[in-house]
């Protein structure tokens, strides 16, 4: 009973938050709603006995990624409303309805193969974090290391891209662009 209530509560909250993200005109609202939605999603993870992922979700998404977005937004003018002229609304919403219908149909349909063999079966009486640790450092060691390298590369790339000509003013860039355009 408690699980049902939790699921529906979290579901309603997540949907609400994400709808705000999608619909809001204010970038700050959207970001805050996104952060909230992330935290509620971690609730699902706890419900599903995936404590490790739940923690990771809070730490990485709500902590790291949202912080990154927050820092990123300092560069942009966020106080102003985001003016968005959405073109051809009809198409967009038709697509939305269609895709939602299809996805729901597919996911609600009885799964094609019910005889799924567990690759890495969960073991009774062993904590989730311990199991993930075991699998991660045995079967998924190489992908894990690759993911680490990927993160490192992404970090360096982010620094390099964002810090390029950090000290120069926007106008100079504009002039340069103008020169380039003229020379074409």
């Amino acid at each position: 009973m408690y699980e049902v209530i939790a699921f529906y509560l979290f579901a309603a909250l997540t949907i609400a938050m994400f709808t705000i993200v999608v619909m809001s005109k204010n970038a700050l609202y959207a970001m805050s709603a996104l952060a909230g939605g992330m935290i509620f999603i971690s609730g699902f993870f706890f419900l599903l006995d995936a404590e490790f992922l739940g923690v990771v979700q809070i730490v990485v998404y709500s902590g790291a990624i949202m912080a990154l977005y927050a820092f990123g937004m300092m560069f942009f003018d966020t106080t102003r409303d985001v003016s968005e002229k959405m073109r051809s609304k009809k198409i967009a919403y038709t697509l939305f309805v269609l895709s939602a219908a299809l996805i729901v149909i597919i996911l609600c349909a009885p799964l094609a193969s019910s005889s799924v063999q567990a690759n890495f079966p969960t073991v009774e009486h062993v904590g989730n974090v311990q199991m993930i640790g075991l699998v991660l450092f045995t079967k998924y060691l190489i992908p894990f290391e690759l993911a680490a390298i990927m993160l490192l590369v992404a970090m360096i790339a982010g620094i390099v891209l964002a810090s390029k000509k950090m000290d120069e003013h926007l106008n100079i860039e504009d002039e340069e662009l103008g020169n380039v355009k003229e020379s074409r």
Binding site: L95, L98, S99, L102, I103, I105, I106
Partner: peptide
Amino acid sequence: GMLVLLAFAI
């Protein structure tokens, strides 16, 4: 494109 693929899957 995704829709078409989903339709195919169905």
